[in-house]
């Protein structure tokens, strides 16, 4: 089985967010970047597990500049066989999806895995767009995936519960908690990652459908009002009269 895993770069979850250039650019100064957690813990690890069970290859794909190479090496250290980087700014979900779809179409994959969402843009869009551009079925927010030959059985989160669905490969799946357990790369993996192929390809002709024109920080919370733990009547009356939530 040939598996393609879409890997994106995200600031570490504890990063203090700030902006530069008149609030139009994310301030990357001193920011530690990581593989987007959903891509790493769930999509990549499940892809590797499936490969280990049934044979085949796991290739990662990333749309981004050379500053993405460290996180790509991390994915290789965890166990991907090879990586592709499309050398372009990841400025718009459609543009990214189009690059991934073009590469995947040209190279033929049985399974394309993405994370549920990126923790920087929280869009949950790229997977569905790739599926549409490749004319493939898509299963979003999957928490369990089993493959038997060319049949996939998947559990996915839907409103009010979990749906068990089936379909045949090839397909695109976005991965969430439950899929797999995080793997810590070992020394051997880290050494091996240095010599695994990281192919850089130039972007295909495409379009940006949206653009970010500025950022702002949310309004500061006012100071917390402390309440005597003996006096819950006061809290209830504040929630009613002041906050007006009950």
């Amino acid at each position: 089985m040939k598996i393609l895993v879409c890997i994106s770069k995200a600031p570490d979850t504890t990063t203090k967010i700030s902006f530069t250039d008149n609030d139009t650019k994310f301030n990357e100064d001193k920011v530690q970047f990581i593989v987007n957690p959903y891509d790493e813990w769930y999509a990549l690890v499940r892809g590797i597990e499936l490969k280990e069970a049934t044979g085949g290859t796991v290739t990662t794909i990333t749309v981004g500049g050379a500053d993405h190479d460290p996180i790509i090496r991390k994915a290789l250290a965890i166990g991907a066989d090879g990586a592709v980087r499309v050398n372009a700014a990841n400025s718009d979900a459609f543009f990214v999806a189009d690059q991934i779809a073009n590469y995947a179409k040209a190279n033929g994959f049985d399974l394309v895995l993405t994370g549920k969402e990126t923790i920087n843009y929280n869009g949950s869009q790229v997977g569905a767009m790739v599926a549409e551009l490749m004319n493939l079925p898509y299963v979003s927010i999957a928490s369990k995936l089993d493959i038997d030959g060319s049949n996939a059985k998947i559990e996915r989160d839907v409103q009010g519960g979990v749906e068990v669905v089936t379909g045949s490969l090839p397909m695109v799946i976005s991965c969430a908690k439950g899929m797999a357990e995080q793997r810590i790369p070992n020394m051997r993996g880290i050494m091996a990652a240095r010599t695994k192929p990281l192919e850089v390809v130039e972007p295909s002709e495409s379009a940006n459908l949206t653009k970010v024109v500025g950022y702002e920080l949310p309004a500061e919370k006012g100071a917390v009002k402390m309440i005597d733990p003996e006096n819950m009547g006061e809290l209830v009356s504040l929630l009613h009269n002041e906050a007006k939530v009950i």
Binding site: F19, I119, V212, G214, Y215, E216, L217, P218
Partner: peptide
């Protein structure tokens, strides 16, 4: 950024 900022 998971609710830590707003983008236009």
């Amino acid at each position: 950024f998971s609710g830590k900022a707003i983008a236009k």
